[in-house]
């Protein structure tokens, strides 16, 4: 049979294509992060990080925004983690396969693809108005929890299902009941995957603007109570840029946000790696 391209050459071409797309992806990532850092880093100093904004953010710092981001994300995670893991355990271990489970799964997958602005509107209508929580950390956190939930459920469910059946059987054969088996054997083995899900969910929450636009308010001071209004970094960035308040400070805010996310990702990855190594005895 006559081939137009010899296997050796096609192998080389494809290797080049894959190599190229890999490099291109990394380049794009470096470009975006680099651009933000180059423009943002000159603005960042002690004062920028640890003082309140002056004149809507034309001058001064972003300390309340950093606190707001951490605060709102924390509230979101406190709600989303137990609910998410609980839901995942139910789906993976108790629910079996039936129309109700299919509906739940379909619902949670649909939820994951709903635009964040719709979450924002719902959060406004439900938490801010209907429950009367007002514009505050709690309303924003709950809205973000709803957004992070599908990611946490899906990822956790997959990693719980990936725990070898032999672990479960070994535990049951020793006389453990189902809950003991889940708590003592299945969840610890699934934790690396569950944490990945939490990080993905948290990343979605921490960088979210639209969903909190109508829910957290726009305070320029440090929120203390969960019923205080706040202004997380993405929202501040959005306001600074769209209202033409201060582009340099917008870049500074963006750089802080990017660094925050990178630090969280790197630290958790390192912790998960250590946990896996210990678990696997390497």
């Amino acid at each position: 049979m006559n081939r137009i391209i010899s296997p050796k050459i096609s192998q080389k071409i494809m290797k080049g294509v894959f190599w190229g797309s890999g490099i291109l992806t990394i380049l794009l990532l470096i470009m975006i992060i680099g651009y933000v850092l180059i423009n943002g880093l000159p603005v960042i100093n002690f004062e920028f990080l640890f003082t309140d904004p002056i004149d809507s953010g034309r001058a001064g710092g972003i300390f309340p925004m950093i606190v707001s981001t951490i605060y709102v994300t924390f509230v979101a995670l406190v709600v989303a983690i137990p609910l998410g893991i609980g839901g995942a355990v139910y789906l993976a271990e108790y629910a079996g396969e039936g129309p109700i489970v299919k509906a739940i799964r379909f619902g949670s997958e649909t939820l994951a693809s709903i635009p964040s602005i719709v979450f924002g509107l719902f959060g406004y209508a439900f938490f801010v108005i209907y429950l009367g929580l007002g514009f505050c950390v709690l309303s924003g956190g709950l809205t973000l929890a709803l957004m992070a939930l599908p990611t946490i459920i899906r990822t956790s469910e997959v990693s719980i299902e990936a725990v070898p059946r032999s672990y479960t059987e070994g535990s049951l054969a020793l006389g453990a009941n189902k809950w003991q088996t889940i708590y003592e054997v299945v969840l610890p083995a699934a934790i690396p995957g569950i944490i990945t899900g939490i990080i993905l969910g948290m990343a979605r929450a921490i960088e979210e603007t639209a969903a909190i636009l109508y829910t957290v308010g726009a305070a320029l001071t440090v929120p203390v109570s969960i019923f205080d209004p706040a202004r997380p970094l993405p929202l501040h960035l959005y306001t600074l840029a769209t209202e033409g308040i201060s582009m340099p400070n917008a870049y500074g805010t963006a750089a802080v946000l990017v660094i925050l996310i990178m630090v969280i990702t790197i630290v958790t990855n390192a912790l998960v790696d250590r946990y896996i190594k210990k678990m696997m005895g390497r």
Binding site: P164, S166, Y167, E169, G170, V185
Partner: peptide, 8 residues
Amino acid sequence: FQKPNPFP
């Protein structure tokens, strides 16, 4: 069991 299945 057939395959050794110690817990992690």
